[in-house]
């Protein structure tokens, strides 16, 4: 069984937000909402500065608090370890939103909770998620973390990297190369 994850090279990323627009059109995300977003993390004082630019989204955690706390079972981990929300079973109670350390979820105007699906419909077809496919800087990589020969596994072995809020113990599956 594949274990899908993402590796994002912060050295290449310019924070242009193409990933955000591509997701919105690909998945018809309602206007005013987004499933991925850009963070510019600045460190230091003028003129001694460092900045990490990150494209962030649902981390599709292995130990997903959103799935554990969902009272109806709408939030679930599906093929390849992708965390999805079954909209028909979602009552919009927002427990998952409160539990997510990454602030990755929102209530869709139609009443259910929505978030990144890793473009499950594309992944099933063997395509990269829309954000990965569109990125002009090719800073994003998607693949099977379980497969030692996958590009994502190789990158994680060869480059320093970190995940977000590892102390939350959620076992996130998005890694940032530094």
């Amino acid at each position: 069984m594949a274990r899908y994850g993402m590796v994002i090279d912060t050295k290449r990323c310019v924070g242009c937000a193409d990933c955000v627009v591509a997701c919105q059109t690909e998945n018809n995300v309602p206007e005013g909402f987004c499933r991925d977003w850009i963070v510019e993390a600045l460190d230091g004082e003028y003129p001694d500065l460092r900045m990490e630019i990150r494209s962030e989204r649902c981390n599709h955690c292995e130990n997903a608090p959103c799935v554990r706390c969902c009272p109806t079972g709408a939030s679930q981990i599906t093929d390849g370890g992708i965390v999805l929300v079954e909209e028909a079973e979602c009552t919009g109670c927002k427990a998952c939103i409160a539990s997510c350390p990454y602030d990755a979820r929102f209530v869709h105007p139609e009443g259910y909770v929505d978030k990144c699906t890793f473009c499950y419909h594309r992944v099933k077809e063997g395509q990269d998620p829309a954000c990965v496919a569109v990125c002009p800087t090719k800073c994003m990589h998607f693949g099977d973390l379980e497969d030692p020969h996958s590009e994502v596994s190789k990158l994680l072995r060869s480059r320093p990297n970190h995940a977000l809020i590892p102390e939350a113990g959620t076992k996130p599956k998005i890694f940032y190369l530094t």
Partner: peptide, 14 residues
């Protein structure tokens, strides 16, 4: 997705 052959388990519109 028309040719997937497996009916998606979820009712996500996508």
């Amino acid at each position: 997705l028309g040719g997937l052959g497996t009916s998606p388990a979820l009712a996500n519109p996508v």
